[in-house]
């Protein structure tokens, strides 16, 4: 049995995976970040990837999006090789995605509504006049009023930026939504608001989701399934309801936030 077959996840309960990763590897210089990641995400499923800071969670998402080229392995989205696809096929593939970035990554030079409508106007050629009410509608879905539409990103608080980022991610009705540390830097109440919004909007769209986080409250709220990334590999995955009974020492140390355990954190004195 090959290493890839041995590490392959269980057969999807929902049929052919929407996203399939096999043996994905990525190193930056001598630092190996991903060392053979295997992961399947079924259509309509919400998978949360947890792991320590610097474990390669963001790199994993960027590999799927083609923003970072893996050194080895395959990534398929709807059966299409996401690494080799080029030109119009790549544009069509990217049109399936929406992403909420860790820092929200709003465009400073555009007003809030222009940020939300960006994918519609620039990506799909919709006239600005037609896109503006859609942007305001999407802002309402994340709990922001029309008065926010004319503000600049620099005038927003951290929580508002995340919500605008979420509105931008869902405005084009993507089939797949990625969330990169959606609650990082927010207070617990605002984190809960964002988690509720993410869960509701993913449900509305019937989208497939991958979220990366080290916030366990967020993982429990927005995920159907949890996968833990450690040492460049998925070392445990299972339904979110079983995370407290994982039987995996790494997962237990992580979810309880203990300094002692198999995960070693180097601290220079």
């Amino acid at each position: 049995m090959s290493a890839v077959e041995k590490n392959a996840p269980e057969v999807m309960p929902h049929g052919t995976p929407k996203i399939r990763l096999r043996g994905v590897k990525k190193a930056f210089g001598k630092k190996v970040v991903l060392n053979g990641v295997d992961l399947d995400v079924a259509k309509g499923e919400s998978v949360v990837v947890i792991g320590s800071s610097g474990s390669g969670k963001s790199v994993l998402l960027k590999c799927i999006l083609g923003l970072v080229k893996p050194d080895a392995g395959t990534i398929e989205v709807d059966g299409i090789d996401a690494i080799k696809v080029r030109g119009r096929e790549r544009d069509a593939l990217l049109a399936k995605f929406g992403m909420l970035f860790q820092s929200a990554a709003l465009f400073d030079s555009l007003r809030v509504w222009e940020n939300v409508a960006f994918g519609l106007v620039e990506g799909r050629g919709m006239p600005r006049a037609q896109a503006k009410p859609i942007a305001v509608e999407n802002l309402a879905k994340v709990g922001l009023g029309p008065d926010v539409a004319m503000l600049w990103p620099a005038e927003l608080s951290g929580g508002m930026k995340k919500r605008v980022g979420l509105a931008r991610a869902i405005a084009t009705h993507p089939e797949i939504l990625f969330f990169d540390e959606p609650t990082t830097g927010l207070d617990p109440i605002m984190s809960d608001v964002i988690n509720d919004l993410i869960a509701a909007r993913v449900r509305d769209l019937g989208a497939t989701g991958i979220s990366i986080t080290h916030d366990m409250a967020s993982a429990r709220k927005i995920g159907d399934r949890v996968a833990m990334l450690h040492g460049g590999r998925i070392i445990w995955q299972g339904p979110v309801s079983q995370i407290d009974r994982s039987g995996n020492a790494h997962v237990e140390q992580f979810i309880h936030g203990r300094a002692e355990g198999p995960i070693k954190v180097e601290v220079t004195q």
């Binding site: 960027k62 999006l65 083609g66 923003l67 544009d91 990217l94 049109a95 995605f97 929406g98 992403m99 970035f101 860790q102 820092s103 990554a105 709003l106 465009f107 400073d108 960006f118 994918g119 620039e122 990506g123 799909r124 931008r168 084009t172």
Partner: peptide, 11 residues
């Protein structure tokens, strides 16, 4: 990450 955001918005 605004340039990454551009790419994910098909631009």
């Amino acid at each position: 990450e605004q340039i990454d955001a551009l790419t994910t918005l098909s631009t």
